[in-house]
């Protein structure tokens, strides 16, 4: 059986990779994908603790999280599509019209 620590380390790595993507990538699609990675890191944590503590409710939360991530991706893509249609770009440095 894989020890819990490994799973947590994996999850932390995934979270860090995703966070880096969110903060560093300039393409909105990439930022969105990185966000999915962050969410999946969190889901991985749920699953890891579920199997560790023999409690199924963690897996229920994992399924819920997957559904949220799917909806999140769908809405995000729709917003970015709409932004692309109106501004011709999805570059995060240029999508800056919600400002003072």
């Amino acid at each position: 059986m894989i020890p819990l620590e490994w799973e947590l380390v994996l999850s932390a790595l995934l979270f860090s990779i995703g966070l880096y993507g969110v903060l560093a990538r300039k393409n909105a699609i990439m930022v969105l994908m990185s966000l999915e990675v962050v969410i999946n890191a969190a889901i991985l944590n749920f699953v890891a603790f579920s199997s560790y503590s023999n409690d199924a409710s963690g897996q229920v939360f994992a399924l819920l999280g997957i559904a949220v991530a799917a909806a999140d991706a769908a809405i995000g893509l729709a917003i970015f599509l709409s932004i692309y249609q109106t501004h011709g770009t999805v570059d995060m440095d240029r999508v800056r019209f919600l400002r003072w």
Partner: peptide, 17 residues
């Protein structure tokens, strides 16, 4: 304060982090 509202989502994310 309003000048901190840059519209750059990633800078917000930096702040959050």
């Amino acid at each position: 304060l309003r000048q901190r509202q840059t519209g750059q989502v990633q800078s917000y994310a930096w702040v959050v982090v």
